[in-house]
Design a protein around this nucleic acid. Structure first.
Lengths: 250, 250
DNA sequence: AATTTATTGTCTCAAAGATAGACAATAGTG
DNA sequence: CACTATTGTCTATCTTTGAGACAATAAATT
């Protein structure tokens, strides 16, 4: 397990990493799965990993995502490469080493673990869309914990990880209507109101209910099921299911 | 000069490269600048290069582009990362080595030169838009020649370079209207017909002249100059110039 | 100098799509 | 059985897009 996460081994491509923006939706909020690093001081970082010599980059991203979420068949997409020269964020590093320098002597902690943080990395950004109910968040040995944070209220993250989330969200906004991928964020069945609130949290703006319903139904990708009786004193909404003819995950 | 192009040196990031789709426009045709490799057998490959340890990836792409075109301030954009496991195209390699194996003994030819072709690479795709008249194509020592080829009639290129061009073109089509970048492909001044023919060659379809003119003028980014008298027996068209308030190149 | 030809610049009208207002239907409440 | 909150849908209006028409004009032709 240790070797798998140490990029200093020769079976990884050097200085190239994958960072994942894992998006889920719950309680009318779009959220990101973010681990907290197992160092002293409060350091959060997007789930990341490396690429084996005999592994495609999409394949590597899938492996990393499965490790963190337990989900095999996940929707994911490349959105950008981050590789500015000063990415290795000296200030963050200095603080981390200052607070955790003693571990450098700890035999349980290989110096190489620090090495991969200090070296210059180019990182491929992927975003993933998951049904939050299916996810069993798993931390790695480098993490202290792993939790969902609202996309517009994230903890302080290292390096350019905030920019990464911003960029992922922008790409998602551009692709959402074209590729019909929003339903990856919802459970198997859902009401029209849930779809609308999801859209609203992605675009951070309101939609007119009447026209939104028309627009979504006109896509002809939803199957109308039975009504959902919530016990509320009003007309019960229909449930819908996404008819995924053609590839959905990918 | 030799060291600069040899990625086996330690000052480069290993196994990561940049491939450039350099697009220009001339004679009503969208074209790509493609070098022919200096090996026996007909091998073409997109202009590519590597990233220095202390260099950002955009910066590296700019350097590579300036080396090939002589232009400093060039419009460029990342469009995708290519990193499938079987990218190193065994068939191409076998043929290349079969035809050029003798060079392995030539002292002028370092074995390392072959090494970078045989190793597995992840490549960041960039596309660039240039005014073809400003370009002075320059080959490197690895090239036999370098020429412009129509984007829909390219020579056989190695590995996944055809897919790269296709992907670059698709990204360009998506970004063209949003980012108003088409004018990077035209000279300083141009007629409306030239803009339309450029659009037609990018989208590979016809546009209605009346509506096209209205659409472009409504963008409010063109400045109307004097008329252009070509000597043709018809009404002289106006010349236009792109008013680049805000960043154009980037 | 009037006529002809090819192309340009712009107008109008129709079709399609997006936006806003309105209202009946209905699951539960008091 | 009236009342409330929400859902599903319809219609009218505004905006954008696409197609046809036509006057303007630079040069060639007569």
């Amino acid at each position: 397990m240790r070797d798998i996460h140490s990029p200093s081994e020769q079976n990884y491509i050097q200085q190239l990493s994958i960072d994942c923006v894992i998006l889920g939706y719950q309680d009318s909020q779009l959220s990101v799965l973010v681990p907290k690093l197992n160092f002293r001081g409060d350091f959060w970082a997007l789930p990341s990993g490396f690429i084996y010599q005999n592994e495609g980059i999409d394949q590597a991203a899938r492996r990393i995502l499965e490790d963190r979420t337990g989900i095999k068949d996940i929707y994911l997409e490349q959105f950008r490469v981050f590789g500015d020269a000063p990415r290795s964020n000296i200030r963050f590093l200095e603080r981390l080493i200052e607070l955790n320098g003693d571990k450098l002597g700890d035999k349980r902690f290989d110096r190489k673990e620090f090495d991969w943080i200090t070296r210059r990395f180019v990182s491929i950004g992927y975003y993933a869309l998951v049904d939050i109910n299916k996810v069993v968040p798993r931390k790695t040995e480098l993490d202290e914990s792993i939790d969902w944070y609202p996309v517009r209220d994230l903890p302080p993250m290292i390096m350019d990880h905030h920019e990464m989330v911003k960029c992922a969200l922008e790409t998602l906004q551009l692709n959402l209507d074209q590729k019909l991928i929003a339903f990856n964020l919802l459970p198997e069945t859902f009401t029209m109101r849930e779809v609308q609130e999801l859209y609203e949290s992605i675009y951070n703006r309101a939609f007119a209910r009447n026209n939104f319903q028309k627009k979504i139904l006109d896509l002809n990708v939803l199957e109308r099921l039975e009504k959902k009786f919530t016990g509320a004193a009003n007309k019960a909404p229909f449930l819908y299911r996404f008819r995924n003819e053609g590839a959905q995950a990918g």
